[in-house]
């Protein structure tokens, strides 16, 4: 297991290299002069030259890449163009709200998604099934910015129950995490349902019933445990989707997290920060995938580590 984990982590390194290369390239792939674009439309040629100097764009490409990689390896990601602070200092304080919201969203989405999925599978073809799947489909179809705005309209403006923006009290976490988790919840619900239905048809379920086991345990201890293998894969992939969700939710609810920082930095053409954020999000995605892979082995005894 440990050896497998190490192997898996090592195998992520080439992937990270490719990603970092792509992120490095993206500034050079923008058509036209990157310095001109970054400096803005009304910039004087002096200002453009200044930007070019700052970003080291005058150096040969290979050297630029060398400097960039050296920076990455020493965790020196350069300075923000917007306020001159180091990229690290710009990102660090934004980290906590995003992680909090992501975890909260993940938590409720997993719990509710699982519950809806199981109920729908057990009551297949009955009202509860339709209700659960209508909730799930709405969750997938509702765009999160629209959902966020509607929720603000209802709970903040009309009813006045919850704060509109920021993350001050526990109440202010409700709407953003709800908005972020909706899509994931819906997908988990649908996958849980279909994989439960598949498993409930299996022979071992009949064996469990023939033992005299009650339906509750047949469903949870046998069918659900087996469905988890499939559900975990999907869930893991969806967490990646939560990152986009954080961009939306943080913008709609004015939360100073990483998602909003990304939007703002793009607006300011703060390209060092954008680069760092893209790297961070990619890294997060890779780590989640790694965790899912390892979880797989815990859940499915047939997976062998070699």
């Amino acid at each position: 297991m440990l050896r497998y984990a190490v192997k898996r982590i090592l195998s992520a390194i080439p992937l990270l290299l490719v990603i970092s290369l792509l992120i490095f390239m993206f500034i050079h792939l923008i058509p036209g002069d990157p310095a001109r674009i970054i400096a803005g439309k009304e910039a004087t040629s002096y200002e453009i030259e200044n930007v070019r100097e700052q970003l080291g764009l005058n150096e040969p490409l290979l050297k630029q890449y060398g400097i960039y990689m050296a920076g990455l390896l020493t965790l020196d990601l350069g300075n923000s163009i917007r306020n001159g602070a180091t990229v690290f200092d710009t990102i660090a304080p934004r980290f906590v709200p995003t992680i909090q919201l992501t975890l909260l969203a993940m938590l409720w989405a997993t719990l509710l998604g699982t519950l809806l999925g199981i109920m729908a599978a057990v009551r297949r073809g009955k009202t509860l099934d339709y209700v659960s799947m209508i909730i799930a489909i709405s969750g997938i179809s509702a765009p999160s910015f629209w959902l966020g705005l509607m929720l603000i309209q209802l709970f903040c403006v009309k009813l006045g129950w919850l704060p509109v923006s920021g993350l001050t009290t526990w109440k202010s976490y409700i709407l953003p995490s709800f908005t972020m988790g909706c899509g994931v919840m819906a997908i988990i619900a649908r996958f849980t349902r279909s994989s439960m239905l598949e498993n409930l048809k299996e022979d071992y379920i009949r064996t469990a019933r023939a033992k005299g086991l009650g339906e509750f345990f047949v469903i949870l201890r046998h069918a659900y445990k087996n469905s988890l293998i499939q559900v975990v894969t999907v869930t893991g992939l969806q967490i990646g989707g939560l990152l986009t969700g954080s961009v939306m939710a943080e913008t709609v609810f004015s939360i100073n997290g990483l998602g909003r920082l990304l939007v703002d930095s793009i607006g300011f053409r703060d390209y060092k920060v954008v680069q760092a954020l893209l790297l961070f999000f990619s890294l997060e995605y890779i780590v989640i995938n790694l965790i899912v892979d390892l979880l797989y082995g815990v859940l499915d005894p047939k997976v062998r580590y070699d």
């Binding site: 022979d203 071992y204 009949r206 445990k225 087996n226 859940l299 005894p301």
Partner: peptide, 11 residues
Amino acid sequence: FQNPMSSLNSC
């Protein structure tokens, strides 16, 4: 049952 392999819970 007929198929002992699938009649046991593989997990």
